[in-house]
Amino acid sequence: MFGDIEGTGFEPLDERFSQCFVDHVAVERLWTGGRWLEGPAWFSAGRYLVFSDIPNNRMMRYDDTDGSVSVFRQPSNNSNGNTVDFQGRLVTCEHQARRVTRTEHDGSITVIADRFQGKRFNSPNDVAVHPDGSIWFTDPPYGILTDYEGDRAELEQDGSHVYRVGPSGGEAVRVIDTMVKPNGLAFSPDGSTLYVSDTGVSHQKGGPKHIRKFRLDGPSLKDEGVFATCTAGLFDGFRFDVAGRLWTSAGDGVHCYDPDGTLLGKIRIPETVSNLAFGGPKRTRLFITARQSLYSVFVVPKGAAPG
């Protein structure tokens, strides 16, 4: 293991992990001062990263051209997960407003979904956009359990589920109802498979702490079982590179999995990691949100777009 910041470094568990890094690369801490950072999303046109600081009710902006960090939006409705759609627009999960929104190019905000069958969502957590333009999101209750990351409130849904809104909008459709606390989600690079983390162990002794995979089969999903189980804390948010490797948050840093499910290695981070996104001009810079800080590391593989 090596690294320039105390507590950081690289832990190879499979020889294939070495192919992902240049020998002299190191983890960088770009900014600190948040309370629970989440939802990194990279905007290529502007060369900046947007990320959420949930308890502080704000979204932050890291400028890749000069390294500065500033407030992007405050208040943010305790925003959590963010992504960028294929038209370069910001899509956001808002705990406090219990909805999913899209920020248009002119800055106006469109509500994508805020209810299912007339009842409010729990607290949309993370979001992914499929190549066909549909928007998929998870809805655990973390944002309404206390006042820390949203507003304490009663659940209106009958559990924690995954939803889809079609490319042309319309009502949300429940697509997965078999998970305890669905959390992060992302599509394989070819869009054929949806991966979803389940953090049910956070509120259920012996509960799940894994990532499941679901094959898209026409209008439905085929559950293909557990892809990986977390060996340190919980999986939260994650992304894919173009070769199909899955890079995921964990309690001790970032874990990298081969498409065959092998844990290739870890990037050690001295704070609990919540999420990550690929960015930079070549999409070879991995941005990592942790408890209080934003980190990054350059990698060899390119991230799958969008982020």
Rank of each mutant, 00 (worst) to 15 (best):
R61W: 00
V69M: 12
D177R: 12
S197D: 04
V100Q: 08
N80H: 01
S134E: 09
G251N: 05
A186D: 14
A97T: 08
P167Y: 05
L30M: 10
H161N: 15
H161S: 15
W31V: 15
D23T: 09
S108D: 15
P75I: 04
A26L: 03
T284D: 14
L264M: 15
G233R: 05
V84A: 03
R120F: 06
G303E: 00
P306F: 00
R174W: 02
K282L: 14
G218I: 01
T178Y: 01
F43P: 02
S76R: 00
S220I: 07
V273I: 11
L90Y: 01
V242P: 04
S202C: 12
L234G: 08
T83W: 00
D64F: 09
G279K: 00
T32R: 02
T8S: 11
D139E: 09
K302P: 07
S168Y: 01
V69A: 12
E94A: 01
P259G: 03
E149M: 10
A305L: 11
F21T: 10
P124M: 06
R73V: 12
E38I: 00
L49Y: 00
P259C: 06
G118I: 06
A232N: 11
E271V: 10
G169C: 05
P141T: 11
L49R: 00
R98T: 04
L37N: 10
L185M: 14
G133N: 02
E271H: 09
S52N: 04
T289R: 00
S52I: 04
G166P: 04
G184Q: 01
P182R: 02
V180K: 06
V175S: 08
G46D: 14
F10L: 15
P12H: 06
M59N: 09
L194K: 12
T284N: 15
R174P: 14
L30G: 08
G244P: 03
F137Y: 13
R61F: 05
V273S: 09
G39W: 00
A186P: 04
G225N: 13
D14Y: 05
D4E: 14
S68V: 02
A186C: 07
L234V: 07
E171M: 02
G33D: 11
R99Y: 01
N77S: 11
D158Q: 14
L185P: 13
V22L: 09
H130P: 10
L264S: 10
T262C: 13
P75K: 02
K209I: 05
E156I: 04
G166C: 05
Q74F: 14
G233F: 08
T138M: 12
